[in-house]
């Protein structure tokens, strides 16, 4: 429980940071999504259920503050990012910057795709968005990967 609460409050700090970032820099396809970075950041902690449940609850709160009325895509994408970082990255490319970037790009793509699936029925055309969503995933991947890679070297190797 204590472990969950620590991660939950770290997650909340990321949510607030994202809200404030977007107040001063209007969100667009070049703005890094700090929530995706938070999901990656949790991979530094030892594998555990508290990480997953922190991702889920913070994801729901992020969706709540994001704007409208759909709760869940951030949480679902968070689970995917965490799994890909925890299993694929750890197992195959444990200490590789490129692997972090790829996992975060993948997570962003899943996140955007989940939202599209839900909003798609409103008449949105995926092909109109595709170039910008790819750009968004690249930005999140590279910036998030850089943050995590340097963070890891500053904090030290805890779980990799």
């Amino acid at each position: 429980m204590r472990s969950f609460l620590i991660k939950f409050f770290i997650g909340l700090a990321f949510v607030f940071a994202q809200l404030l970032l977007c107040k001063f820099i209007a969100y667009n396809y070049f703005t890094p999504n700090l929530m995706i970075v938070f999901y990656g950041f949790l991979a530094y902690f030892p594998l555990g259920l508290s990480n997953l449940y922190a991702i889920f609850t913070v994801g729901i709160i992020a969706d709540l503050t994001n704007g409208l009325n759909i709760l869940g895509p951030s949480a679902a994408a968070g689970v995917i990012v965490y799994l890909s970082l925890s299993f694929v990255v750890r197992a195959l490319l444990s200490d590789h910057f490129i692997a972090l970037c790829l996992a975060l790009m993948f997570g962003t793509a899943i996140f955007n795709f989940l939202y599209f699936l839900i909003l798609g029925s409103e008449g949105l055309n995926l092909f109109n968005f595709l170039p910008k969503l790819t750009l968004n995933a690249l930005v999140n991947g590279v910036l998030g990967g850089l943050a995590l890679y340097f963070g890891k070297h500053l904090v030290g190797k805890q779980s990799y």
């Binding site: 994202q18 809200l19 107040k23 969100y27 992020a62 994001n66 909003l119």
Partner: peptide, 12 residues
């Protein structure tokens, strides 16, 4: 204005 939404899909 105290905060802004941070999603591509919603603007708030």
């Amino acid at each position: 204005v105290i905060a802004a939404g941070s999603s591509i899909w919603t603007r708030s």
